[in-house]
Design a protein around this nucleic acid. Structure first.
Lengths: 231, 231
DNA sequence: TTAGTTTGCGTCAGATTAACGCAAACAAAT
DNA sequence: ATTTGTTTGCGTTAATCTGACGCAAACTAA
């Protein structure tokens, strides 16, 4: 058995859609390019896969370079193959998306690269390559996944209030959800557990803090969150 | 802007999980290899991606070669990156799965390659490369997708009875489903439409034939099929 | 002190689910 | 031809779930 001979293979890249949530705003990490192609424009952060790297290694490399942190929730999204997606030549992109709580990055804020920026999901500029499509696919995936899997707790602090979780869902789904029904569904689901604690510095009836239930591995759960139509 | 220089890139392959359904049996198209690696063993059909091909082109090429037919339901599954997945060297696999009604192939039966065979999903042999993992991922995807999307009609004839559809679901999900509740759910969903016709050669009260409702494009529907616990 | 907001808990009519009954139309066995 | 079992279509029902929204205690802002 002989190894592959020198096929000409398409270049193979990883592109990342890194979601961050802060102050009722879902944003994505964009890269301001300072070289061709798309010099001066925005793209998603990405890198070519090295021969000895696994996808997750390449992801880590990108995240470390641009965010100074690489242990994030990471999920493979889709592989993109438009022959014209990169003007430099044939390149396949394996896209991943990641979830970060930008708050947790603040300690390492100085390590965030100068050429990246958080951009509000609702105000996406034009993106180079086929990155607009990748972004749209990622947002779609996040929106549908959050309905049946406790993704998104990755976007909040370790402890959070019901209101914070509610706002996160409204923000990601870009719709309004009935507060009381949401509360009931989430608590019934046992996705989260009450800690019995309240945030420091607040008085008696401050909102209760919850944590994600790490023991829970239910897979086929359906939140089925109602839209708030009236009010 | 210069084109890519000669990076050494991993080889890039497409592997296919082709599902076929016949006589209450869900099967997958396997390839009997007659060269190394895994000579004499089973693998999924696959091929390397040519520089000018899109994924779907490579899929078509494989399907035409092995089945003599290439217009099937096709969906990208996942991309696999284990550095050890191919003993010949680094190779990435972009896996797709396809659905065929083997009945529709019969006319072109002679064109089916001699080195492939339909194998019952429940009796999968050892597979070369990481193809067992790819197969498992595909089956999982099919099982979850069938619950919220009218995939699977691709596996039946143009017209089919409620019983045939019911059996297909039981077979794919590998469980028993209450016939009467299944019927109600499916009819309420409007995934299928009654034709008012009965299969030829049968008498008055032969089972009614249905067709897939092609106008239906509902996306967030939940079949929520109950398991039949008693009886 | 008053007026609004946030948070937690509750109510309730209507829809949905899961389990299963029943009979007409057929098929197979005697 | 009659009996017996199976297939197919259509119902029923109790328990549960959904979605809309009321209410008051604890807080905040004016």
């Amino acid at each position: 058995m002989k190894p592959f001979h020198s096929y000409r293979n398409p270049a193979l890249a990883i592109d990342l859609v890194v979601f961050g949530y802060n102050a009722k705003e879902l944003s994505v990490l964009l890269l301001k390019r300072n070289e061709e192609p798309f010099k001066g424009g925005w793209t998603l952060p990405g890198a070519f896969i090295q021969m000895d790297e696994r996808f997750s290694d390449t992801c880590s490399r990108i995240l470390r370079t641009k965010l100074g942190m690489d242990k994030l929730y990471l999920e493979q999204l889709y592989s993109f193959d438009d022959p014209a997606r990169d003007p430099r030549g044939r390149a396949i992109s394996v896209a991943y998306y990641a979830l970060v709580n930008p708050h947790k990055l603040e300690t390492a804020a100085s390590t965030m690269a100068g050429d990246v920026e958080w951009v509000d999901c609702r105000k996406m500029p034009q993106l180079g390559f086929d990155h607009k499509q990748i972004f749209k696919t990622a947002l779609q995936r996040l929106r549908s996944k959050i309905l049946y899997f406790p993704v998104g707790f990755e976007l909040l602090d370790e402890q959070f209030t019901m209101t914070e979780l509610h706002e996160l869902y409204e923000c990601i789904l870009d719709t309004s959800l009935d507060r009381r029904n949401f509360r009931r569904k989430i608590l019934d689901s046992e996705y989260i557990l009450p800690t019995g604690m309240k945030r420091e510095g607040l008085q008696n009836r401050a909102p209760e803090l919850y944590v994600f239930n790490k023991k829970l591995k239910r897979n086929n759960f359906q939140l089925n969150i109602p839209l708030s139509k009236g009010q």
